[in-house]
Design a binder for these strands. Structure first.
Length: 323
DNA sequence: TGTCCATGATCAA
DNA sequence: TGATCCTGGACAT
């Protein structure tokens, strides 16, 4: 799942559920245990994303998370009344609840970092409840992180180093696309390889890369230096639009309105990642537009998908791939 | 039950 | 460029 839009959604989720509140940190798996202890009980000041990186600030300590290919965060909200048994938890006859125990799901699997907060909601301004109710309300939030490439505590200086390695992020207002262009316009590498370089456009991954090239009818193997400035500007604007949509919906949809199932009278094509796309993971299937089979090839260790019919815009192909 | 694969990135050679 | 790390779902046996 993790391209940039996923991380920006995660930052928003962490903020919505934890920001400004004391939290409990632990590492049931153990691999983050010493660090989790250091931030246990601290207030989440803010969470933000840059590219595929998430930074969660707890005072002096910043938790840096990179999901890699496999990482995942699961959020579990729970609400329970000590007398009513709402939401998760056993409820019923329990008059003096142990919210930490049954509002939080069991720690299953390789759980690197668990962040929780459990509040008695009565008197908590963030969760006003009916003052007439004589039973106590408890609200819990749990965020479970599994399988990240990185989960570590950084100092503010170390955060700057990580941030400094990243190019402009289309999802950030402070992004300067010209920084990416400087790198692209000087490179002989195929544009498809450049788009995966986080110094060119932070947050772009294999799906956005393939789909962006398709939408701009670009031969993936064209050298970056042969791209025109106006083309880069158009691609950047498109990335901003597509990735913002991804943040809103939580999936990657790249098919233009005129090629959507209703417009073309075709069946929706929902695969594992849930979005409607032109080429990603569609090798061998006919292109939605020209009907030519989508192709797949390995480029720098990753699968690249493209339509040889539609993606002909090329001034010259990179010698790396001329076959 | 075992094998393969994946929206990523780093390191050594 | 290849090896490696991380986890879980799909698929084969």
């Amino acid at each position: 799942m993790p391209e940039g839009h996923t991380l920006h959604r995660l930052a928003a989720e962490y903020n919505a559920r934890f920001r400004g509140r004391p939290t409990h940190s632990c590492s049931p798996q153990g691999r983050f245990a010493p660090e989790a202890t250091r931030i246990d009980g601290q207030v989440l000041v803010n969470a933000e994303a840059n590219g595929k990186h998430l930074f969660a600030e707890f005072g002096e300590h910043v938790v840096h998370v990179h999901l890699g290919l496999l990482g995942k965060v699961t959020f579990t909200p729970a609400t329970r009344s000590s007398a009513g048994g709402k939401g998760l938890g056993s409820g019923g006859a329990i008059r003096q609840p142990e919210p930490e125990i049954d509002l939080v799901p069991a720690a299953v699997g390789a759980l690197r970092w668990r962040l929780t907060t459990v509040d008695a909601a009565a008197g908590n301004q963030m969760y006003p409840v009916d003052a007439a109710a004589d039973d106590q309300m408890y609200r819990a939030n749990t965020a479970d992180l599994r399988g990240p490439t990185a989960c570590e505590i950084l100092t503010p200086g170390e955060v700057d180093i990580v941030m400094g390695r990243l190019g402009p992020d289309p999802l950030r207002l402070d992004a300067d696309p010209d920084i990416g262009w400087q790198r692209v316009s000087k490179s002989r590498m195929p544009i498809a390889a450049l788009l995966m370089d986080q110094r060119v456009a932070a947050g772009v991954g294999n799906i956005y890369r393939a789909e962006l090239l398709y939408r701009h009818r670009l031969d993936p193997m064209m050298e970056g230096r042969l791209l025109r400035a106006a083309e880069w500007q158009a691609m950047w604007g498109d990335l901003v639009t597509l990735m913002r949509l991804g943040v809103l919906t939580g999936r990657i949809d790249t098919v233009r309105p005129e090629h959507e199932p209703e417009a073309m009278g075709r069946q929706p094509r929902m695969d594992r990642h849930g979005g409607e796309v032109y080429v990603y993971r569609r090798s061998g299937q006919p292109c939605l537009v020209c009907g030519i089979p989508i192709r797949m090839a390995e480029l720098a260790g990753r699968n690249l998908f493209w339509c040889p019919g539609c993606q002909r815009r090329s001034r010259r192909r990179s010698p790396i791939s001329r076959q």
